[in-house]
Amino acid sequence: MKGSRVHVLVLVIVLCLVLAWLILDSLTPSNPIKNAVSQVASPIQYALRWLGTPFRALAQGVENINKLGEENETLRKENSELRNQIILLQEAQLENEILRKELSFKSSVPSYQLLSAEVIGRDPSEFFKYLIIDRGKDDGVRVGLPVITADGLVGRISEVGPVSSKVMLVTDSSSSVSTLVQRSRATGMTQGYPGQGLIMRYIPQSASVEVGDIVLTSGLGGGFPMRLVVGQVAEVTEQDVAMFKDARVIPAVNFTSLESVMVMLSFQEQSVEPLAEPTPE
């Protein structure tokens, strides 16, 4: 009986601690309970991830073995095409730089300081698309910084702990990125769409969007730098009566097999202030 009373007391204490954590979390961005938990959890997550590496490699190996021959042939072709494209692009870049210098334009491709980070955990709930990385406040990471891979945009930092951070993926339902279609320069807003991946909305009806078009960040709104690859258009939905059309976008990054990412440390987020109320004259 005595033991049972102690158990209920322990349960109440744990409940109170959880409530305190939830309240502190909504009041302050860096609450001490969360920081302490994150410092204990990060090494365990790292170790668990390390433990899973051989199984992951084995699973990927089995999965890839059938595709290897076919993939090799495709990659060979793609490689020779890309070589030619690189030469042409280098020429174009050189010409672009010369012309920009002549016109005294600011460089359109600023260099960013990148910090590599390993993925040590994922959101345990399927409806929310977050990653946990092994870099935190101690490494200079802060909320709002864009996260990328060589393939394209991953998302942005949403929470920062001392040694780890949470990344909100572009596919999360809370994510919204200003984008444009590379070919036609049609602008829109690419949002996470649970159950469908990504959707580019608010594309003007008159704009041209086709399946296969590449979607890039537009830099509008200042949340992300320009020209990061977001994905590729897979389907276009348009209705005669609607003001805008939508496009389903396949993300450029394969989020399920993501192991490491890069945080754009030197990016300065530009927040757009709302316009001031006009004063009557």
Binding site: S4, H7, V8, V10, L11, V14, L15, V18, W21, L22, D25, K34, V37, A41, G121, D123, P124, S125, F127, F128, K129, Y130, I132, S158, E159, K166, M168, D172, S174
Partner: peptide, 27 residues
């Protein structure tokens, strides 16, 4: 109970902490 509820509180709190979803709702 109460061991089952303790497991649920701790489990809910851990899932909520690692998730980007609504924490209170998950717990």
């Amino acid at each position: 109970q109460p061991e089952g509820l303790l497991a649920a509180v701790v489990g809910g709190a851990v899932v909520a902490a690692l998730s980007g979803g609504p924490r209170l709702l998950i717990v």
